[in-house]
Write a protein that binds this DNA or RNA. Structure first.
Length: 501
DNA sequence: AAAAAAC
């Protein structure tokens, strides 16, 4: 539907948003069999001074139906003396009846997923400790922090008591949508603090004070409201950073995030801070555990992060010459879409806004319906394109890394990397390295909640081949090559092998 | 290079 020429672009886009992580589907459950507590080191039994215990939560999961992405062990390190028991049922969590009803009736959940089982007790048990939590894509992280926020709000009191900071507008909106559904029966109110349409822009000083209980938004708007004294943070009890590794990364939102965290911690007299993401590279991890020194931690080994039900492939899209063959990429994409349309929705990732536009134009002109989104679009168009895709009105969405993180759409079962994610710093240094974290997030747009999916990585050069090899090594996961031949069934077979079709 | 962002 979307006509590329029709979508206006703004010279300076200051919208933010992106979409979140777990949405509609049933959080399928993993069975928590045992939580054995092993004392760190060879500490003698009487050593009460030992502050840290390492709990190896060995978790066997039984994926009963189609859900259950998390196979691997997650390792939890607790701080302090509290012993947490994994929640087998939502009833184990002392939630209000309103929230229980929201989980079962509105969300349709049955039991906590693995990350929920492990993290929710840590979030909800006093004394309220900070938490850094890593879990697989599509494993239900959003539910963890949304439930955390809802549980800590007193609906009889007015004003902000919980806050969530996200990297993009789309993600903030998606998270708020989840919160509203889950909190449907609780009487808890929320607002989305993101840049609004330029037409209806109201300067901060003219806005009323925020009265809602929960504020979800992007760093700039949140900061603006805070400095404009329209967002009082004195009663904030819980502060969440979604996609926390990115929110705290150099070159990410580090400065904004630290500022916000510092101010709120001071104003509120110390509030609980939750950091959630599917990825934490070593640099961020070191920094993060410094930020939440006295907190609990949940981590997953990077080798265990790849989603089993999502099949990854690579396709050679260059011929003899060692330069990208855009034409060949288009042909391969067309092949993928031919069959992809039959199985569900497709997201195509590109590196730049310009490629998003160009690819959109090209595919459209060849009769392949698609839409595209990137940060230069005006907010109205961004919202419209997301809505159309979420409503299933469009099948193919071309995007920059705007949607790499958190975007949750169960029907997406094909992801195409038209360009591989490259670490910009290394690129500038002249020795390009892949951005493995972004790669993992892109892959995670499919296979939500244990569903099946396929990812096609288009290799435009020998360099791309080397990049993907580094990604394979990073995750210790070999990615098979699929023939690009236009005359055989390699692509179809790959889609079939992934369990689609 | 992507994203957020202002009055």
């Amino acid at each position: 539907m979307a006509d590329p020429a029709k979508t206006e672009e703004k010279r300076r886009a200051w919208g933010d948003e992106d979409e979140e992580e777990d949405s509609s589907s049933v959080a399928s459950s993993s069975l928590v069999t045992a939580a054995s507590v092993a004392a760190e080191g060879k500490a003698a039994e009487g050593e009460a001074s030992e502050l840290k215990k390492i709990e190896e939560l060995s978790i066997t999961e039984k994926s009963r139906t189609l859900d259950d992405p998390e196979d691997s062990e997650i390792k939890a390190v607790t701080s302090g003396n509290t012993v947490y028991e994994a929640a087998v049922k939502f009833e184990d969590l002392n939630l209000s009846q309103d929230l229980i009803k929201g989980l079962y009736v509105e969300m349709g959940f049955t039991r906590p997923s693995k990350i929920q089982a492990v993290s929710l007790p840590m979030i909800l048990t006093p004394p309220y400790k900070d938490l850094v939590a890593q879990a697989h894509n599509g494993s239900g992280k959003t539910t963890c922090f949304v439930l955390g926020m809802l549980s800590r709000v007193d609906p009889t009191k007015e004003g902000p008591q919980a806050m969530c900071i996200c990297p993009t507008r789309e993600l903030a909106q998606q998270n708020q949508a989840v919160l509203m559904r889950m909190g449907k029966y609780s009487g808890i109110t929320s607002m989305c603090a993101i840049p609004s349409e330029s037409a209806g822009y109201i300067p901060v000083y003219k806005r009323p004070e925020v009265k809602e209980h929960v504020v979800i938004g992007t760093p700039g708007t949140i900061k603006k409201l805070m400095t404009g004294r329209k967002l009082k943070t004195g009663n904030i009890k819980i502060l969440v950073f979604d996609e926390a590794d990115h929110m705290l990364a150099e070159g990410g939102f580090k400065d904004d995030s630290e500022r916000i965290m510092k101010d709120i911690r001071k104003e509120s007299g110390g509030c609980q801070v939750l950091l959630f993401s599917a990825t934490f590279n070593e640099t961020v991890k070191a920094f993060v555990s410094n930020v939440v020194r006295d907190g609990n931690q949940i981590f997953v080994k990077k080798e265990d992060l790849t989603l089993e039900k999502v099949k990854q492939y690579k396709v050679k899209c260059y011929r003899d010459r060692e330069r990208p063959d855009e034409r060949l990429k288009i042909e391969v994409i067309k092949k993928i879409l031919e069959y992809g349309q039959k199985v569900g929705q497709t997201i195509i990732f590109v590196r730049t806004k310009e490629s998003a536009r160009n690819l959109h134009k090209q595919l459209s002109s060849e009769g392949y319906e698609c839409t595209s989104i990137q940060g230069a679009l005006v907010i109205e168009d961004r919202d419209k394109i997301i809505k159309e895709f979420k409503d299933g009105l469009t099948q193919v969405l071309i995007t920059t890394d705007l949607l790499a993180r958190g975007f949750d759409q169960a029907q997406v079962n094909l992801v195409v990397n038209h360009d591989l994610p490259v670490n910009y710093e290394s690129y500038r240094r002249g020795s390009p390295e892949p951005d493995c974290e972004v790669y993992l997030h892109r892959v995670g747009r499919t296979g939500r909640f244990g569903r099946k999916g396929a990812v096609f990585n288009l290799l435009g050069s020998r360099d791309d081949e080397a990049l993907l090899e580094m990604i394979e090594n990073h995750f210790q996961h070999k990615i098979p090559m699929v023939d690009n031949g236009q005359n055989d069934d390699s692509i179809v077979n790959a889609i079939k092998d992934a369990g689609l079709l």
